[in-house]
Design a protein around this nucleic acid. Structure first.
Ligand SMILES: [Zn+2]
Ligand SMILES: [Zn+2]
Ligand SMILES: [Zn+2]
Ligand SMILES: [Zn+2]
Lengths: 121, 121
DNA sequence: ATGGAAATGAAAATCATTTTCATTTCTGCT
DNA sequence: AGCAGAAATGAAAATGATTTTCATTTCCAT
């Protein structure tokens, strides 16, 4: 396992904490950083392992990486500008738990995201 | 736009209503059906457009297609065998709506899935 | 039957991601 | 400083799903 190259994390931050590997790579190129695409991929993977960033998927399946607080939470995302608000999911947590119990499922997790258009857009 | 080849839908049903394009294709091959991979892709896309199947993503980003009732609902999925239960999301609907309002978002939608291990597994 | 539209599928193209592997950089030790 | 092994790096090739191209076939209405 390789450690994350700190410039990758820093670039992801600069990108608004929300970008694909290809985007991070292109951004670093434009800014004159000398780095290989492979290292960008490896660093982002490593950040995901360390739970420093979330890995999710665009509609087309491309992986996007998002900087992320440490506790369990959900997101409210602007479909237009990408602005992301971390929100608490109290109601979801209970819903997931009760639904799982009702149907006899164990070891349950869940995903929940809200997306729309933010007030600025 | 092309119409969906009915044998594709029928195969997806036979697969348990849950498969990737590649899997549907391989299954049809094994069963001696004469069909091209391109047609399988086109048919599945068309079924998604018509909202007859859901399109979601495996962890690795591969698209999987799932037969699906017609009204808005959520899913409880077994990570082991893939068994899927359609569930109502009353609590989620309210949560999503209130969170969105609270942060000034409009045109909001949401996704929510619960996954765990079913009682059989 | 006939002409145009829709469907089909083989092959090539695309594109994100992973793998390979040789080279470079780092680290601890003498 | 000098050296050895470990870790990091990145260019190029490989992979694999999905899309595009395009020529051919099937349908359908007249
Ligand atoms: Zn916005
Ligand atoms: Zn939650
Ligand atoms: Zn199961
Ligand atoms: Zn809902």
């Amino acid at each position: 396992m390789s450690r994350s190259n700190p410039r990758v994390l820093s670039t992801l931050e600069r990108a608004g904490g929300f970008a694909s590997a290809q985007e991070v790579y292109k951004l670093m190129q434009r800014e004159g950083e000398k780095i290989g695409l492979t290292t960008v991929y490896r660093s982002l993977q490593s950040l995901v392992n360390d739970k420093i960033v979330d890995l999710l998927r665009r509609e087309d399946g491309e992986a996007i990486y998002r900087l992320c607080g440490e506790h369990h939470h959900h997101h409210l995302v602007c479909k237009s500008c990408g602005e992301t608000v971390e929100i608490e999911g109290g109601a979801i947590e209970k819903w997931a738990k009760s639904m799982a119990e009702e149907h006899g499922f164990r070891d349950v997790g869940h995903t929940a995201e809200i997306f729309g258009i933010c007030s600025k857009c």
